[in-house]
């Protein structure tokens, strides 16, 4: 059984790293990993997960429920949990570079830019 140590390496190397897109825009942190366990083969990372609900879950179920309720109430970001398939990861070094075009992860950033910060003087 070499899987557990392999999985631990993955967690140490990727979890909580910065995610950036090809243009170096920061998309968030690797808040969670979805790992597929396979019979007789080493486990494989299927997705990297990001979003408030993902980190909240690491603190406890109560926190996740709270974030989900808050997300429904505010409704800025469609999904409080976002998965990026591992196949979209192009590079892992200081940051995890992903090749994705649409960024639902930046929903809050864009909402605040359009509705709050961008409306203040000298913001642009």
């Amino acid at each position: 059984m070499t899987q557990p140590s392999h999985a631990r390496h993955l967690v140490a190397d990727i979890l909580d790293k910065q995610i950036v897109d090809a243009k170096k825009v920061k998309l968030g942190k690797v808040d969670g990993l979805v790992i597929v366990l396979r019979e007789g083969k080493p486990p494989r990372v299927a997705f990297i997960e990001c979003g408030a609900a993902v980190v909240a879950r690491r603190l406890g179920r109560w926190c996740e429920r709270f974030v989900l309720a808050l997300n429904r109430r505010l409704g800025v970001r469609a999904k409080p949990r976002y998965r990026i398939p591992w196949s979209k990861v192009t590079k892992v070094d200081i940051e995890v570079t992903v090749d994705v075009d649409e960024h639902p992860l930046l929903a809050w950033e864009e909402w605040l830019r359009d509705h709050v910060v961008g409306r203040l003087p000298f913001a642009k």
């Binding site: 825009v25 920061k26 968030g28 864009e110 605040l112 910060v117 961008g118 203040l120 000298f122 913001a123």
Partner: peptide, 20 residues
């Protein structure tokens, strides 16, 4: 800590969460 874009040299609108 949360992985947002940050930096003092960009326009506030480009770093909305940081500036706010």
């Amino acid at each position: 800590t949360l992985g947002w874009n940050w930096g003092e040299d960009e326009k506030p609108a480009e770093r909305a969460r940081f500036s706010l």
